[in-house]
Amino acid sequence: MGCFHSKSRRQFPGYEDPVLLASQTSFSVSEVEALFELFKSISRSVVDDGLINKEEFQLALFKNSKKENLFANRIFDLFDVKQKGVIDFGDFVRSLNVFHPNAPLEDKINFSFKLYDLDGNGFIERKEVKQMLIALLSESDMKLSDETVELILDKTFVDSDVNHDGRIDKSDWQNFVSRNPSLMKIMTLQYLKDITTTFPSFVFNSEVDDIAT
């Protein structure tokens, strides 16, 4: 059995020991193994190479592999920690860990800041917020006049850019989300607490003897 499993898991570049991943995250060993079931199904949906590429990620997210979405692209790029154009299992687990209900709020805030800092230059600039707003409007078929878009941007920066330098830095963002905690709702996935019941087949594929939790 052990031989069979270790061979099959070698087909997953970036596969990491569930016990080690559990020690680095809020997940139990069983939950990491359940996530492996999810990872396997996503990673073989288009190309069976043991990795998740962007098309597979979009397919899992939208049930449509051709759906381009700025935010899904951003999430994919942040999950692709090694910047290889693919997500491996270790990075998948560690990235999802930020969305765990028990993950530190600070990690969630940092991740959301990176998500919205499209250029990755350490600031969320007005042009980036505008780009995201326009992407959201086109995604939701919502029509707003240019004037309204500019008014929304004005309001957003009045609310969040405390030092009025025209861009939102990390401390502006921390301050802003602490006053608007609803903005952090998307950073917590309750699903991650029930992952073993969602993917019960992990029990049959487990490599770990006597799973404790």
Binding site: L61, T156, Y191
Partner: peptide, 25 residues
């Protein structure tokens, strides 16, 4: 005239940010 929403409130409704669908089989 309705009160203006904050851009981030609108953005956070994007389907692309709702990772919950990854877990729906």
């Amino acid at each position: 005239r309705p009160a203006l929403m904050n851009a981030f409130e609108l953005i956070s409704t994007s389907q692309g940010l709702n990772l919950g669908t990854l877990f729906e089989k």
